[in-house]
Amino acid sequence: MRRIINRVPDHMTVVVLAAVPFLVLAALYLAGSAARLAENPNDKLLPAVTTMAETLHRLAFEPSRRTGEIVLWADTAASLTRLALGVGVAAAFGLVFGVAIGLIPYVRAGLASVVAVLSMIPPMAVLPILFIVFGLGDLSKVVLITVGIGPFLIRDLAIRVGEMPRELLIKAQTLGASTWQIVLRVVLPQVLPRLIDAVRLSLGPAWLFLIAAEGIAATDGLGYRIFLVRRYLAMDVILPYVAWITLLAAALDIALRLLSRGLFAWTRVRSG
């Protein structure tokens, strides 16, 4: 018998094995839902798939009677805008400060400790302050995301820049490069792929901060909707919303991975 660490499934088996857990989860849900509904047709905890489909259809295709907007798309647009702004600003900060801290000893001496300490502050603990300072509108949510993931991005990039082989920086100088030219032509191209990876890693926390802030104080957004309908135990809204958020998160992750691959072909080159 071969050791199990040496046994590799073929392509078909991989597909089947990957599908099994999903099918099991779906079957468990269907069985549970059917059992509860058989006992009590008004049960709200595990709504039938058909109920969820009807609700989702209403949310995704029919204008709301109250506002005239199509709820799902309005919520999605509001949430994605906040997420994109928060993550975008954090990434810009991460790049500028990360490169400066990693490359310039005087900046590192001045800022590395304060960034390390700031990154220890639990972002949710300062959310009330953000609401007080920036109001209950979009700004406080964007700032929460930025505050929440910015320090991680800064530190991650600073570490990457610090890890670059010293030889490359020396080499650039012996080719006559100024500090600015070194940043443009040596440092940035090498850390941009890492920035995209770091952003991918921080998307999870970014969603967390977004949903939490929307749940606490907002008038639209995916998180707002989930927390709103919780009062009515509307699992037929909550579950499709959670699935939709998961789908969006996965799509963003894949899009960033493809972007990184497309832009930075050299990272995939391996000697043959």
Partner: peptide, 10 residues
């Protein structure tokens, strides 16, 4: 240098 003498991204 023996290693890291050229820019890997170029």
């Amino acid at each position: 240098f023996q290693k890291y003498s050229v820019f890997p991204h170029l």
